[in-house]
Design a binder for these strands. Sequence first.
DNA 1: GCCGTTTTCGGCCCGACTGTTTTCAGTCG
Length: 580
Amino acid sequence: MPIHNEDIAQVFDQIADLLEIQGENAFRVRAYRNGARELRGLGQEAAQLLAAGADLTDLPGIGTALAAKIAEVVHTGTCQALKKLERELPADLPELLRLPGLGPKRVHALHYDLDIHTPEQLYRAAKDGRLRDLPGFGPKTEAALRTALETHFTSEPRFKLASAARYAEPLVAWLRQTPGVDRVVVAGSYRRGRETVGDLDILVTARQPAAAIARLRDYEEVVQVLEAGDTRATVILRAGLQVDLRAVAVECFGAALHYFTGSKAHNIALRTLARAQGLKVNEYGVFRGRQRLAGETEASVYAALGLPYIPPELRENRGEIEAARRGLLPELVTLDDLRGDLHCHTNATDGHASLAEMVAAARQRGRDYLAITDHSKRLTMAHGLDSRRLLEQMAAIDRLNERLASEGVAFRVLKGIEVDILPDGGLDLPDPVLGQLDLVVAGVHSQFHLSRADQTRRVLKAMDHPYFTILSHPTGRLIAEREPYDIDMTRVIRQARDRGCYLELNAHPERLDLSDVHCQMAREEGVLISIASDAHGIQDLDDLCYGIAQARRGWLTKGDVLNSRPLKDLLPLLRRTFHA
DNA sequence: GCCGTTTTCGGCCCGACTGTTTTCAGTCG
């Protein structure tokens, strides 16, 4: 089995958890967590870097010790340091750290004093009243843990961005109705546009913070109030989503918004930068000694540190602070930059709306073009198109375009297909038919479990095809449901560059495929990205907003996006310059 | 364990809330 960065990151996280429970130096613990984060955001496999002879200590946060452990895991699949810790402590103990109210000190006590190391054991102890006499615990902690465990056993951990939005928007509207409340903004990973969010961080400015907090407690979806102070409250919604509300003064709004937007790693990096300038940054502002220099807006916070404004989607400590210092921040693509959509389905296959309905909906949304890309015959369960049915659809599109033109409508329906990439790398329709299309979107819909070598070879071969235009959902992952298939994305991105074809950022909220990191890699290689809805119905056409969030997280500018081009510039790009 | 525009040693982000406390540790974001 090849070792992936995620595998190594998990080893480091486990080491960090166990060291923390043992009471090890907090900065040593943090070093492992930083190492895990660096690996997850790396974009290319550490195993490959090692194979190419790279020095991993060149990576930020990776020194000789961590580099040696990475090599050890890559070469042996295990890590002796972790094994040693697991001999000293139960390996499942860190799971307790995920419970609200439990940190390393209390987990340490649970293990050493009561021999508790699973949530189930903890729940029994809480019910039996055995926790309250433990040092650092009491009756309230015991009761809170009991409730937290009951939630833990039933709720889902993270919410997809689109799903979180369904809870966030009505709650924001509710809070806006509080008398005296001025601004209500969702910060946190939601504002950074992460593909999943763990909780909602909501910031309000209010003359009377207590009114906003009371209003939150009254919200009908609130099933539990975890804490409620003068300026902060934490509640749980019926769906299991945690909401943290903070009320701040108007003059601190920017500093607070910045602080609660995070990411944690970005904030730490920024504070470190501030310290070097003799400044202090907290949620109230930027300070030199007791003098407050900034804080009303986020831009003022950055300006006080000598930086331009950094958009929330970039705040992951993946080079954005250095780019800001050097004036090299990208001007990120926006939803308004998109001129059309290059991937959707109709009821000819597994879509819910007709060709005419999809086109009308796209026009209504102000788009200039829409590519119809139904499935090909291999996907029988989606009633995929064979050559005859595809040719019929193409004729229907021609007629529709003629009618639009005769009505003086500046809109173009593009003839396309989402053709299956067969296990051998061939495409699921004959060349004479594919050659008549405006574009060929091609994707993997079967045989997800090929080896990395075979899967990579399969896709690279498909991209060699003269009519191949765009690789749809390049890694096949479904967020929190299906892992990406094992494929060498570095080679796929380089192949796209060499062959003059494109990669899709599938905007469906369950896919968001490419990932942010792969978008950034594609950008660095000069490969254009199609941000596409993959709509199977009219409403799905609005999912482009999630694709935009992901694209921004991947540092993409308007120029990096294929479908930001007006039609006249797009059409030549769809004609392949390369021929196999 | 990592790192260097005061440093190769001595630092490493910062404040609110809670509960268990007789003045503060632990947790959280």
